[in-house]
Amino acid sequence: MAHIDYYFSTISPYAYLAGGRLEEIAAKHGATITYKPLDIMAQFARTGGTSPKDRHVSRQEYRAQELVRQAKKLGMEFNLQPAHWPTNMAPSSYAVIAAQNAGGGELGGLIQSLMRAVWVENKDIAQDDVIKACLEGAGFDPSLADTGLFTGAETYERNLEEAVAAGAFGAPFYVVDGTERFWGQDRLEDIDLHLAGNL
């Protein structure tokens, strides 16, 4: 059975655009997924990247065009300038970690709900009430937002270290069976082909 380590940030627009396709691909091939939220700004600093606000204007302009085009291509709602971006990624990431440890809900749905809150609904996912609503909507106990914070912090930091060690340098980033790396929501088709033995 194949396994996918999924490195992502809860504020990444490209991770939002991935939608539920990773879960669909994993189900199709009987693969398992470990969700590994991380601090993408720290990841950029560790792997030679630059935060969006510090990029050359030509890169910023291209990013703005590409995000809008990709959202249209995928038929997804998207707000290029959300009211609460960037925001503190840690509280929502801790909630994802707690939910993954607890089980009992739809983890992919939780992550998508958090990112939709940022990129469509203009909500601040650093806020407790927003996180709890997303947890509840995905079938988890909303009190998970208040529990396991120490474990969440440790795991969040470990995820960053594991991402760097695995060669992950952006989000979304997928590592299949510890060796095959795929960067970006536009590489999900390649993961599908790889798992089918065709790539």
Rank of each mutant, 00 (worst) to 15 (best):
Q65H: 13
N88V: 05
N88I: 08
W85R: 08
K28R: 12
W183K: 12
Y7D: 04
S143I: 13
F182V: 05
E23C: 02
T10P: 07
D192Q: 06
A171M: 07
A31E: 07
A102V: 07
V96K: 01
G20M: 13
R46D: 01
A90D: 00
V68I: 15
S51L: 09
T147S: 06
I191D: 07
I25G: 02
D146S: 15
A26N: 03
M89L: 03
D186C: 15
V68Y: 02
R63H: 04
Q60F: 10
R187C: 04
T179F: 05
I25Q: 02
E161W: 05
W119H: 09
L160S: 04
G167C: 00
G178Y: 04
D146N: 15
T47F: 00
S93E: 08
M89S: 05
A165R: 13
E77W: 07
L135D: 08
G20Y: 11
T179R: 15
A165H: 01
H84F: 14
A99Y: 12
M115P: 00
A26P: 01
F140R: 03
V96M: 07
A166K: 05
F169I: 03
F140Y: 15
Y94H: 09
A166F: 02
R158Q: 14
I125Q: 01
T47D: 00
E161R: 14
A45G: 10
A71R: 08
R21L: 09
T87L: 07
F169H: 07
H29Y: 13
G103Y: 08
E61I: 10
E136M: 14
A90L: 03
P172V: 01
Q43I: 04
D124V: 06
F150I: 12
I125V: 14
E66G: 01
E61K: 14
F78V: 06
L193A: 15
K132V: 15
I97T: 01
D192A: 07
R21P: 01
I40N: 02
E154P: 00
T147E: 09
Q100N: 06
H3R: 13
P86R: 04
P172N: 06
S93K: 07
L160G: 06
D190K: 15
F140S: 12
G104E: 12
D39M: 10
S9F: 03
D129Q: 14
A166I: 00
L135P: 09
G30D: 10
F44C: 13
A196P: 01
G19Q: 04
S92G: 08
A71D: 05
L74S: 05
A138N: 08
D124E: 11
G48S: 03
T32I: 11
I40F: 02
V68M: 14
